[in-house]
């Protein structure tokens, strides 16, 4: 479970006195057994929020707990319990897909035999039979995402944080990914997914937090957001939620 309270993060800007406010005030809750979507336009603060929640960067203010561990004081414990897929996650091109995954499994504390057994499960789950022993140089974005996702899942983390996981995936790969995420949800995992694609959110998420200019503008289920904004179309509901006009359809 993830609980965030008033997270804020600023970055210094080269040549400017005023810092860039990436996240102003983010409070959200992502339950176990749920898929929670963090929905927002480009530059809204989604990736920075996820990086703070995974203990990668410290917040300037606010706090958050992942499975009861504080992201500041227990960053290593937080990272131990999280599987994280960053936006456009890179992989090692001179290693095979299997070697990429084994590397992360071993760094997460798994033995080689244990990792190999887990990789066999993931190969089946993500449909990676044809690529698992190939060097990853020249992989398509979809194949790279699969390797990244397998790396994030290999140590069987309770909590999954995925930054725009459908980016670059084709229709079939996207459908397959949704199916995998639903399976993981049904097994009781907490899944937090950031996206700016409405369809991903409506088809996948049980709960949605809409973020705009570093602030959570609205948080509810898809049906709840439609009701709160008085819209029937989720894209319109999103536009209303971030305070924009519906005129430019």
């Amino acid at each position: 479970m993830i609980e965030a309270q008033a997270l804020a993060k600023r970055f210094p800007q080269k040549g400017r006195k005023a810092p860039l406010v990436a996240v102003r005030d983010v409070s959200l809750r992502a339950e176990d057994g749920n898929i929670t979507g963090l929905l927002g336009p480009n530059g809204a603060g989604k990736s920075t929020t996820l990086r703070m929640l995974t203990g990668l960067i410290p917040p300037d203010s606010g706090s958050a707990r992942v499975d009861g561990w504080d992201i500041g004081s227990d960053a290593l414990k937080v990272r131990q319990n999280i599987g994280y897929l960053p936006h456009n996650a890179g992989i090692y091109p001179r290693l095979s897909a299997r070697e990429n995954i084994v590397y992360f499994a071993q760094l997460s504390g798994m033995g080689k035999t244990q990792a190999e057994a887990r990789i066999d499960e993931l190969v089946e789950l993500l449909g990676m039979d044809d690529i698992i022993d190939r060097r990853t140089e020249g992989f398509s974005q979809g194949q790279r995402t699969k390797v990244g996702l397998a790396r994030a899942l290999v140590h069987e983390p309770q909590t999954l944080v995925l930054d725009e996981p459908t980016n670059g995936l084709d229709v079939m790969a996207t459908r397959k990914l949704r199916m995998v995420l639903r399976q993981l949800r049904d097994r009781g995992h907490c899944i937090l997914v950031s996206s700016h694609i409405m369809q991903d959110v409506t088809l996948l998420c049980d709960q949605v937090a809409i973020i705009n200019e570093g602030v959570i503008a609205m948080e509810d289920s898809v049906a709840g957001i439609l009701e709160k904004t008085g819209q029937t179309d989720f894209e319109d509901a999103f536009v209303v939620a971030i305070g924009e006009s519906l005129e430019n359809r």
């Binding site: 990086r51 990668l56 990272r79 994280y84 960053p86 996650a89 992360f104």
Partner: peptide
């Protein structure tokens, strides 16, 4: 190189000091 091919962030997200 690790930074350029975007494999640094996943590495830093692991429970490794």
């Amino acid at each position: 190189g690790e930074r350029e091919r975007l494999s640094l962030e996943p590495l830093l997200s692991l429970a490794v000091s």
